[in-house]
Amino acid sequence: MTTLPSISTELQEPSAAVEHEEHGDFRLFGLVLFLVADGMTFAGLFAAYLTFRAVNPLPTGGIYELELLLPTINTVLLVLSSFTFHRSAKLLRAENSSGCRLWLMITVALGVAFLVSQMREYFTLPFGLTSNLYASTFYVLTGFHGLHVSLGVMLMLIVWWQARQGGSITSHQHFGLEAAELYWHFVDGIWVVLFGIIYLL
């Protein structure tokens, strides 16, 4: 076993063609996988919430009637922001950098408006984090989602700054923008599910 026997060459054909292969960009693919994982975190929390509702019926009055106006406005804000973001990305690809930045800022504004309005709702609610099972789940779910929104706003600001500098975000190189957009759509989608489950159900 000390000598190295020759290995038949037909088994391993050398490949001059792929010398120092330049591989493509998988970062978006990686991000998708990450979002799947993140989505599973939400799925776990949703499952917990739904089971609590199904098997732990609260005493009458335990489930508070939620004011629907503010959350509906919130939903509209977020859905709208998905479109504005999309528009911003399209403008970048059309080499319109200032248009891109403008629409990005509009998206940021919508995101911030969402957060402010969410805060307002928190302060007007008749229950606190530990009032009961329902209240706790409500705050943890919306809060966890709110964290995602905040992160999304931060990402947008970074991307906006990079686009302004013109260095790392250009019409040819826009991974950052694209990633932020994908992430934003995801956060948006989660909100729609959350809205359906918590407010409408």
Binding site: A48, T51, F52, V55, L58, T130, N132, L133, T137, V140
Partner: peptide
């Protein structure tokens, strides 16, 4: 001190 898993607070 939420009560998700605390039966004393209605948790499961």
């Amino acid at each position: 001190h939420t009560g998700f898993f605390n039966p004393g607070q209605g948790g499961n």
